[in-house]
Nucleic acid binder design. Structure first.
Length: 370
RNA sequence: GUGGAUAUAGUUCAGUUGGCUAGAACGCUAGAUUGUGGCUCUAGAGGUCGUGGGUUCAAGUCCCACUAUUCACC
């Protein structure tokens, strides 16, 4: 009896949008879901309690970072990531494949694995798919990701093909090495921005799909319409019975477009990152709280918002905190931004339930200034 | 009161033996941020160089007076 299962509760008639229940060893996740990112075993500036208050169902953490510091063995000794960071809901760890791509000036990729230098102290490390599985198993997340090669926007056809072949061969090795029933291994679909490669990749990962599938290599600086075109191309070929995870997305508009195209899971650093730089999500678009026009604005970030920050603090105060580089400012906007996205997911689910997702999305995007 | 020092962007300061549209840092203003190497990154505004004279082809720079600030001593 598997510890994982996915059930579609409601399928939208007009679009790919759907509501699902994803059961994991640490509880049931209602999809579509947004996962806050906690790279270093913490969602920057927030406590697990605050995340729960914001209805975060699952968080993401990062293999690359935890492997380098404090080291996966220490996390294992602590009793696993859940115990280590005091988070008893589901956790997903990214494989580090993306870091290999984003830290490219430090890396050397071969078919066997990746050699790279630590950004912390320059020490050389070598990661293979097998090693990556070993690390992610030690970390102990509920969902783990295959070790993949993520290409940049602008990679030529040959490079994209080569990366896809490598990703497929690495997936095979991850799959064979991974023998832990407590963890769901998600294959990652690559193929850069070539529709036929994307379709081919979506088909080729099918034999490796047990509990879920991820779409990687998007949202890497391309125009948004290109990402949507790739999603359109892949949509007919996804497995139906598992959740689909669009990695690294995103902004409210991208999430809506993703849900419409059958995506169930999203993660993004955006809400916490822009919070630290003084920008908040609102239903009408981004609000740069740091700006001078809010100096004497004693309204909450967003009128009617039920988050802790909006219930208790004003734009003028938060602006002051951000300008004074006080940590509490980053905390308050992070709380608001994560609340904003989890609340968006609630609204999306409600719309799907009531068979009005398409209308909801169009109305929402009419008000949301990108 | 006497003697010295200083006066350049909002602030703290650079500015060579006089030589192009006077610079920096911070601050300010506005953008960016998508599987987090980010208290980050990008751009912009802002100065009749204390005031008034003088010397010179040319003065932020040299000379004089005044004003302000500041230090020391009466």
């Amino acid at each position: 009896m598997s510890k994982f299962s996915f059930e579609t509760i409601k399928q939208d008639e007009k679009t790919g949008a759907r509501i699902g229940q994803f059961t994991t060893p640490h509880g049931v996740i209602e999809t579509p879901v947004f996962m806050p990112v906690g790279t270093q075993a913490t969602v920057k500036s927030l406590s697990p309690e605050e995340l729960k208050e914001n209805n975060s169902q699952i968080i993401l953490s990062n293999t690359y970072h935890l492997y380098l510091r404090p080291g996966h063995e220490i996390v294992k000794k602590a009793g696993g990531l859940h115990k280590f960071m005091n988070w008893d809901r589901p956790i997903l760890t990214d494989s580090g494949g993306f870091q290999v791509f984003s830290l490219s000036d430090l890396r050397k990729i071969s078919d066997d694995g990746v050699e790279f230098r630590s950004h912390l102290n320059g020490a050389k490390h070598y990661i293979t798919p097998e090693k990556d599985m070993e690390i992610q198993e030690a970390l102990g997340a509920d969902i783990i990701m295959a070790f993949d090669e993520c290409t940049t926007y602008g990679t030529d056809r040959k490079g994209a093909e080569r990366a896809l072949e490598r990703t497929m061969s690495w997936l095979d090795r991850c799959y064979k090495y991974h023998q832990n029933d407590d963890q769901a291994l998600f294959p990652i679909i690559q193929g850069n921005f070539y529709k036929d490669l994307r379709i081919e990749a979506t088909k080729r990962i099918l034999p490796y799909v047990k509990h879920g599938v991820a779409i990687g290599g998007l949202s890497v600086g391309e125009p948004k319409h290109m990402m949507y075109e790739m999603l359109d191309a892949m949509q007919p070929y996804y497995p139906v019975h598992v959740p689909r995870y669009l990695m690294g997305v995103g902004s409210p508009d991208c999430i809506l477009e993703g849900v419409e195209r059958g995506i169930d899971m999203f993660d993004c650093v955006l809400p916490t990152r822009i919070a630290r730089n003084g920008t908040a999500f609102t239903k009408t678009g981004k609000l740069v709280v740091r700006n001078g026009e809010y100096k004497e604005d004693f309204r909450p970030i967003e009128e009617g918002c039920t988050c802790y920050a909006c219930q208790n603090y004003t734009r003028a105060y938060i602006r002051h905190l951000i300008n004074a580089k006080e940590i509490f400012g980053a905390r308050l906007i992070s709380i608001h931004n994560i609340h904003f996205l989890t609340n968006l997911m609630e609204e999306i689910k409600q719309a799907i339930r009531e068979d009005r997702f398409k209308e909801f999305k169009e109305e929402y995007l009419k008000n949301y200034k990108i």
